[in-house]
């Protein structure tokens, strides 16, 4: 098993290398000249040339790639073209809101979607099942910003229950923090709820068809007990897997949700950077998100081997 873990960990290296190469090429291929941007309106060609040399932009592709990878390894993600701040500082400033949003969405989605999926599977073919599946399809079909605006309109402007926008850091209190995040989490959670509810229902159907469940049912075991103890336990692996894979969906959605609710997180940083063509920032954020994605999926994989003895490699 240790050999498997080692192999699995090592396998992430080429993946991250591909991401790094891609992200670097993005900057390299980018149109426009960062040196010209930095120099501004009134600069002469000489000024631009001087800045280009000072940024090392006049060196060949592979040399620059090597230097860049070296910088990253030592923790230097470069400097934003527009703010002149280190990219790692800009990212650090914005990790908390995005992390909060994603975690709350995850908690919310799992606690809503799993019971939904379980009930739908239990009542397969009934109206309840259809309603749940209908909702799931709907969740895939309505874009997150539409849900966001609807929620903001109803719960913030009309009813005035929750704030419209913004973010309160966690250390200023749990409830102020929560208050700001409820609407964005629900908006962002839609797709995730749909995804998890569907996969839960599907795996539950499979597990419920197994002999030992039928036996338990025949013995007259408590229904809720069967559902949540026997069946759900065995359905957990695919559900957790889809949570890991769905992370990509979550990150993509966060980019939009943060714009709608003015949350100062990584998503808005990304959008701002893209609109201004601030390539070092784009690079840093894409690299970070990919790293998190790879890391989370690695952890999920490893958890299986630890907790499910049936999985052998």
């Amino acid at each position: 098993m240790w050999a498997y873990i080692l192999r699995r960990v090592l396998a992430t290296i080429p993946v991250m290398a591909v991401v790094a190469l891609f992200v670097f090429s993005l900057l390299y291929l980018a149109p426009g000249d960062p040196a010209a941007v930095i120099a501004g309106d009134q600069a002469t060609p000489d000024d631009v040339e001087r800045i280009r040399a000072s940024l090392g932009l006049d060196r060949p592709y592979l040399v620059r790639f090597g230097a860049w990878v070296g910088d990253i390894m030592s923790g230097d993600l470069g400097t934003s073209i527009f703010t002149n701040l280190p990219v790692s500082t800009m990212i650090a400033q914005r990790v908390e809101p995005t992390l909060s949003l994603c975690l709350l969405t995850l908690v919310l989605a799992v606690s809503i979607a799993v019971p939904m999926g379980v009930v739908a599977a239990w009542k397969q073919g009934t109206l309840v099942d259809r309603a749940v599946m209908g909702f799931a399809v709907l969740g895939f079909s309505v874009p997150v910003f539409v849900v966001g605006y609807l929620l903001a309109y109803v719960f913030a402007l009309e009813l005035d229950w929750l704030p419209v926008q913004g973010y309160t850091p966690f250390r200023e209190g749990f409830f102020p923090w929560l208050e700001n995040l409820i609407l964005p989490s629900i908006a962002l959670g839609g797709v995730y709820i749909a995804l998890i509810a569907r996969i839960t229902r599907a795996t539950m159907l499979e597990v419920l068809g197994q002999d030992y469940i039928r036996t338990a049912r025949a013995k007259g075991a408590n229904q809720a007990g069967i559902l949540f103890v026997h069946a759900l336990k065995n359905a957990a692996v695919p559900i957790v897997t889809v949570i890991g894979i769905g992370l990509a969906l979550l990150i993509g959605g966060a980019v939009v949700t943060e714009s709608v609710f003015a949350i100062p997180g990584l998503g808005r940083l990304t959008v701002d950077a893209i609109l201004r063509r601030d390539y070092p920032v784009i690079q840093g954020v894409v690299l970070l998100f990919s790293f998190v994605y790879v890391l989370v999926n690695l952890l999920i994989d490893l958890l299986y081997t630890l907790f499910d003895p049936r999985i052998r490699y």
Binding site: G75, S88, R171, F291
Partner: peptide, 23 residues
């Protein structure tokens, strides 16, 4: 971004703080 940077970023976050002190 390697692991060390990531942790470094987290530490920077704790050190610089990201918002106003409680008012």
């Amino acid at each position: 971004m390697d692991r060390r940077t990531f942790i470094g970023a987290g530490a920077a976050l704790a050190a610089t703080g990201i918002a106003a002190p409680a008012l």
